[in-house]
Structure formats: C-alpha cells, structure tokens
Amino acid sequence: MLPRLCNHCENPPCVPVCPVEATFQRQDGIVVVDSDRCVGCAYCVNACPYDARFINERTQTADKCTFCAHRLEAGLLPACVESCVGGARIIGDMRDPESQISRMIAEHRDALMVLQPEKNTLPQVFYLGMDERFVTRPDAEPVALEVLDPHGQEMGYEFRH
C-alpha cells in the first residue's frame, strides 16, 4: 500500500495557476482551497503531478487533502494518522527542530524519498522504505482493465511491473 495524498509542496504547481487565487499555501505550509472563491476551472487539477486534486461533485469546486487542517486546529491528529494501526504515518512541525518529525528526518535523511522530485515541487510528504519504482511514474503492463469491489463498483485498474 502506497498512500498518495497531497504532498503540500513547498513549491506547489497548483497555486500559481489558479486564476482567482482560491488556492493558497498557509503560513504553516498546508495548501488549501477556498471553496467559496473557486470557480471550478480545474486548472489546478491538471497542474498537480500527483493526482491529488479533484473536482468535488457536491460543491463543484476543486478539493483535496487538507492534512485535516480542521482537526489540527482542534489539537487532533489527521484522520489517516489517527487511524493507522501500525503507526506508519507521522505528522509534525518540521520547523521545530525538537519535534519527532524533525528528529526522524535528520536520522533518515539519506533514505527518505519524495515522489517525482524532478518536477521541482519540493514535496513535504516523505516516504521511508518505499519501492524506488514508485518515485516516478511506474512502467507497468496492464493486467485487468477493471477491478471491481465486492459491491460491483470499480476500484481501478490492475497493473504488473
């Protein structure tokens, strides 16, 4: 399982393309969308190399992972971090040198990987122990065009590398 969430890039390609400045980077680095201002042009959806953005069918505006900013503000952990039983997801303040995340980054600096580093987006989501074939777009053969879940809903496509 390779979780692919918004990378909350330091140099986010989705922000400058927005024609109405509806998407922006907060002071703490989290990239969010103002859904009241968004016109739904989907330019940011195309500009994100990580498929992290989509048009929300209900609001008809651009939507994305917010690092659960609303939970962070309430002193809670993001839902994905909270629910990960293996404790494999770690979030923290990288600007605080004493935080767990800062210490781990210092400890594993050489082994850390980010997705599509050549895009120069400076992702702020780091992977430890990831299969290197996922750093860039994996070159794989399609096996099955449609994979269905037990309810008959399409989950995606299956590939073999």
Partner: peptide, 23 residues
Amino acid sequence: ADLHQPLRFWHFYAYANSHSWMS
C-alpha cells in the same frame, strides 16, 4: 460552460491573479 461554477465567472475580475495565464 467548462467552468464547474460558471456563475462565479465574475471572480476572474474580482480576484485576478497575474501569475496565472488563465487569469
């Protein structure tokens, strides 16, 4: 019509962003 919120087209003029070619 390609905007998902076509009635918000006036946002283009209220909140123009010179960094965006679309703007």
